[in-house]
Each structure stands twice: as C-alpha cells, then as structure tokens.
Computed example of a mutant assay.
Amino acid sequence: MSGSQRVLLRTVDVARESGYSVQQVRDLERLGVIPPAARSSNGYRSYTSVHVHALRAYRGLAGAVGPVAARQMLAELRTETIAAAASAISSVHVRLARERDEALRAQQALRAIQDETNTPELEQASDAMTITELAAALDVRPSTLRFWEQEGLVIPERVTSLRARRYGISAIRAARIVAALRGTGYGIPAVREIMGSLHQLDGLGETQRILQQRLDQIATRTVALLRAGADLAAVVTSGQEPIAG
C-alpha cells in the first residue's frame, strides 16, 4: 500500500480534487463508480487518492463510452488482473479507431457518389460482397442489412436461383453511409430522407456535414479517453492492493 493511499480524505477534499460536487461524489459512490468509503467511528466517510483517480477516470471514460458503460467498466477494472484490465481499456481504443475508420470510409463513399453524377462508374463483379462479408466489414449483423433493405436504405442485387443477395459498389457505399448515420444517432426515417437526397447538391452537402460531425464526436471521445489514461492506470494498479480504511 503506497503512502499516497494512506492519506485519508474527506468528501469535500475528494470533490475538490475530482471536480465533482460533494453530492455527486456520494451519488457516484452509491452507483459503484468508486469503492465504498471507509467509515470512522463517528460515521464520517474517509476516502483515499484511489477514489479521486476513479472519479477522474470515470469522467473521461463516460465521455468515451457513455456513463452506463463507464460505470460497469470501472467496477470490473477494480477486480480484474492488470493484463485483463489493460486489455479492456485497449478494446475501447480499438472500438473508437474502428468507428473513425468507418466514418472515413463513409466520407469516401459520399465523394464517390458525388463523382458518379458526372462520371458513372461500372461495377465489377469482383468488387461485390455477400451479405455476410458486408456485415462483417461494417461490424453489424446480417439481419441489420436485411432490415435496411426492407426500409429501402440499401438495396442489393439478387443473383442465382436461390436469390442470394449481392452487394455491388453502389450498395456498399450506401451501406457505409447508412452505418455512419445510424452510429451518429439518426433514426430510420431521418436516414431514409438523407439517403434519398444524396444525388441532390444540398443533400450531399448536408450528409458531408453530418459525417464530419461524426468524426468530430469520435475525436472528442478519443481525447476524453486519452485524458483519463493516467487515472485509469491508477485504478487498475490499485485493484491489486486493498483500499485502506
């Protein structure tokens, strides 16, 4: 147990160091974001620096993955091995990187759709994807692609006597844009309207704005996670040692 962990803090001290209010500290303790505070003989709470690190880590993690997922993750990090905890944190970085890559691909698809207005492109059979391949590329379920087809958002071709779905270049581009829009939080009716306007100048401009907004949001979440790095490391390593009372 380190010397810093032996220094006992009052609720007001933790609030000041973490940037939360006294009531928020108590609420977040109740929600399991931080370990339960030790109680003195007179009933007062006693905290340590670990609690401050956990609260700071929660702020960044909540910005990256949302408050519910952040609460669950922090609770798990305190009981995991260092290797398992590091892997969990790395997976968040990987998820954000993948979301960014998909948003960039959607932007590329949008530019290609814009170019098609003047230079139509012939699709090659070798560029086509099956529903399983496209679902894996977008990290969605095949049932999601079937639902998008039912909603008129992404229309594949039907080939062979079994009527198997085949997604050509245009359908793949549309799917990437739909996936990015859905990831931004747009509902199906709004996505349908946007996709219907893609071959209009104003529609292309609005979609580009939305995709750039998506990239900006991912960048903000990534920075929040990076800022939480040192505090997350402190939480992970503190899980190997008992919290002082």
Rank of each mutant, 00 (worst) to 15 (best):
R6Q: 15
V7W: 04
L9F: 13
R10E: 12
R16N: 10
E17K: 11
S21C: 07
V25G: 01
D27Y: 10
L28E: 00
L28T: 06
R30K: 05
R30F: 03
V33G: 04
I34D: 02
I34L: 08
P35L: 11
S40A: 14
G43V: 11
G43C: 10
Y47L: 14
Y47Q: 10
S49I: 10
V50I: 13
H51K: 10
H51Q: 09
V52F: 13
A54Y: 07
Y58N: 04
V65S: 03
P67T: 14
V68W: 00
A69R: 07
Q72R: 09
L74R: 03
E80N: 06
T81E: 03
V92G: 05
H93W: 10
R95M: 03
A97T: 14
R100C: 03
D101M: 07
A103L: 15
L104P: 01
A106T: 14
A106V: 14
Q107L: 12
A109I: 09
A109Y: 07
A109M: 11
A109L: 10
R111M: 13
T117D: 14
N118Y: 13
E121S: 06
L138N: 04
T144C: 13
L145D: 09
F147P: 00
F147N: 08
E149I: 11
Q150R: 13
E151R: 15
E151V: 15
G152K: 12
I155R: 08
P156W: 02
R158N: 02
S161T: 02
I172R: 01
R176W: 01
I188H: 00
P189G: 13
H199C: 06
R209W: 08
Q217H: 13
Q217C: 07
A219N: 05
A219D: 09
T220S: 13
T220R: 15
V223N: 05
L226R: 03
G229I: 02
A230C: 10
L232V: 03
V236R: 01
T237Q: 02
Q240C: 11
